[in-house]
């Protein structure tokens, strides 16, 4: 496992392979050591509300991966043409455009999921991960590493989302992806679903515990935020 927590190196001029060591690091770091949610503290806003069940969480994660990677790519492509003073608005418009595409696709092909995610698809726009990565990475890097960075951060976000959703759905409703996991005889013997898991605070407890576990495993992250 890599030991670095900072990923931003000055852009290099010399040519390098598509999956050079540096690029692989850019892709892999956000999954754990530099996870956007638990280490960078970005994008918690819209993350927790969609984790009651696994399926919406997966769809949401895919949407975020799409938006972070392509917004990073687009901004990195046009970064030299953006005047510094209005860069926020330019970034927001690019992100809003991509989110609109995701939203319309969901409405067209997965209407029930789109209803379940309600306003949280729109809130990808103000998801701090997207803006944070644009500011911290895409504005200063070339398109391909930026694209990888977007995918990496989207995946890091998705992992947390799915982990939390698995716990909440399994303990809260006794199922995964809608299939019953806890057998009927367990209920007959007195097993009861944990009602707290379906309520909003459970997501916060689970993330808190995840952070605890992650930081006691990797003590360098203590005081990272």
């Amino acid at each position: 496992m890599s030991v670095e927590t900072t990923i931003i190196a000055p852009p290099e001029v010399k040519k390098e392979g598509l999956f050079s060591k540096k690029n692989r690091k850019v892709l892999r770091d956000p999954l754990d050591d530099n996870n956007p949610i638990t280490v960078q503290v970005l994008g918690i806003c819209s993350a927790l509300a969609v984790t009651v069940q696994v399926k919406p969480a997966l769809i949401m994660a895919l949407g975020v991966i799409f938006v972070t990677s392509f917004s990073n790519l687009i901004i990195a492509l046009i970064r030299d043409g953006i005047p510094n003073r209005i860069r926020m608005i330019v970034q927001l418009v690019v992100v809003a455009l991509l989110v609109t595409i995701v939203d319309q696709l969901l409405k067209a092909y997965m209407y029930d999921i789109s209803k379940k995610l309600s306003v949280f698809v729109g809130l990808i726009i103000t998801n701090c991960i997207v803006m944070g990565r644009l500011e911290a990475f895409a504005m200063a890097q070339r398109p391909w590493p930026s694209f990888l960075d977007g995918i990496g951060n989207g995946l890091g976000y998705g992992i947390i989302l799915v982990v939390v959703a698995v716990f909440r759905e399994l303990l809260g409703s006794g199922s995964l992806l809608g299939y019953k996991i806890v057998p009927q005889w367990a209920y007959d013997m007195g097993y009861v679903n944990n009602g707290l898991m379906v309520l909003p605070p459970a997501a916060l407890f689970l993330i808190g515990i995840y952070i605890w576990w992650q930081r006691s495993r990797n003590r360098k992250l203590i005081n990272a935020s």
Binding site: L199, L204, F205, R215, S216
Partner: peptide, 23 residues
């Protein structure tokens, strides 16, 4: 507070507890 839980971790859990109170 246990060291790995300090800062962000405990803030999350406290928010959860406050959320339960608001429930």
């Amino acid at each position: 507070i246990p060291e790995p839980l300090q800062g962000l971790g405990i803030a999350m859990i406290i928010t959860g507890l406050m959320g339960m109170a608001f429930l």
